[in-house]
Amino acid sequence: MFFSKIIDRLALYDLHRKKSKGQHFSTFSLGTIARDEFYKSNVADVSIILNKSRKNNMVGTFSYESLIPSGDLVNDTLKGEVFLNKNDIDKPNVIFVHGWRMDSYDRIKNIFHHRIMNDLGWNMYYYSLPYHFEREPEHSLYSGELMISANIDRTVESTRQAIVDLRAFIHWIKANKTGPVILVGVSLGGWITNLMATLESQIDVVVSIFYANRLSYSIWNTIPGKFIREELEQHGVTYEDLIRYWKITDPSQAMPKVNKDNILLISAKHDQYIHIEDADCLWERWGKPKRYLYNCGHAGIVLCRKKLALDTLSFIQEKLKR
């Protein structure tokens, strides 16, 4: 336990070497609206460009315009990587959703990519969250700075944009591919994946790894959110306020529309980024779906990648056989 916490603390020290220099705070303006209406989506107009061939795969990019424009042109064009099996008949379609402040897909690829490409032959899509990677505006100091911040309203709208656009992409896959759709999220991507599971019934299997549950909890009670919390408190926002403001982004406020038997949750007991107490809250609220508890911290994304790959892919394969 001590070793796991030390590794996480060192990683957090490095994380906070980059922090926001200006003020982000903005008040909240969302009125009363039903969750299903707030996150309502349509089919995206997806463009796929395949420009490389590797063994049995065609490699390229996918892109489309956001259905929830933020007004920032860079952020409002979604781009991601795609790897399609040349014999694309009934192949499973796996969508990976990355974590907050990641600046590449490498951590996720290091867990799953080669195993899926070489052994399973599934289609893979790497989805970019708002204000990350190519969607990061020039004035942003780090990837994801503008997605989660003390700007209460923008954080909610960024969450909405992520969910609506991801649902639109899933609808496109369902309309253009015959294989099942699997959603795999890591860290903040796990939170997005969990929220998706409460809204989108067209997902066949969900795996959420080292996931956040309530964004308000993470910002207020964990080290990664400390500077955002400080800014909120400077403007008189309390924890109770934040819970209320961000309630519509809370996955534990609703039951999943995905079959509970097809949901796998993976948490780290000594996670300093996402507390196990908050992860437990979702697991219990959802009626205790399949879960693995790792004896590590958040750094298990790197240190436990072989186990993560084995547990995740074994679970997916088991569900696809049924």
Rank of each mutant, 00 (worst) to 15 (best):
R135C: 06
S267K: 12
F96I: 03
T77L: 14
G297D: 01
Y217G: 14
V181E: 03
I148R: 04
C281Q: 15
K174P: 00
I33P: 00
D106Y: 10
V94G: 00
E136Y: 02
Y125R: 01
L67N: 10
D250I: 05
Y105N: 07
H98Q: 10
Y239P: 05
I276N: 09
K226C: 11
L10S: 09
L242R: 08
N259S: 15
R9D: 08
N56I: 02
R244I: 03
L195A: 09
D36R: 03
W283E: 08
G22I: 08
Y127G: 04
I316R: 10
S70N: 10
D119F: 07
I219W: 02
G297Y: 01
I203Y: 10
P224N: 04
V184E: 06
R322L: 13
S63G: 09
G185A: 03
K319H: 04
Q161P: 01
V205F: 07
I148T: 06
I48C: 01
G287Y: 10
I170A: 09
I95E: 06
D204G: 02
E138P: 00
R115Q: 07
T238S: 15
F25L: 03
Y239H: 13
L282D: 12
I228Y: 08
I274T: 12
I68E: 14
I173Y: 05
S143P: 04
H275N: 09
H132T: 10
Q234F: 06
Y292K: 15
L232W: 06
K86P: 02
T27I: 07
L188E: 06
Y211I: 08
Y217Q: 12
G80R: 01
T238W: 04
N262K: 10
M255S: 15
K52I: 02
L78C: 07
K19M: 10
N259C: 13
I316W: 05
T32R: 09
L215C: 11
T178A: 11
G287E: 04
F133R: 12
N75D: 05
R54A: 13
K109P: 04
D90R: 12
F112N: 10
S128I: 00
L15N: 02
V156K: 02
A279N: 02
I276F: 12
G22Y: 13
D241C: 02
R9C: 03
K18I: 11
T238H: 09
G144S: 13
G31Q: 11
I152K: 13
H235C: 01
L78F: 15
V181I: 15
L120V: 00
Y64W: 12
H24N: 00
T155H: 10
L183Y: 07
I223G: 03
S216D: 14
Q161V: 00
E240R: 07
I263D: 00
D278C: 11
R244W: 06
C281R: 15
D14T: 15
L293P: 02
V82A: 08
T159C: 12
D119Y: 03
K321C: 14
D278T: 08
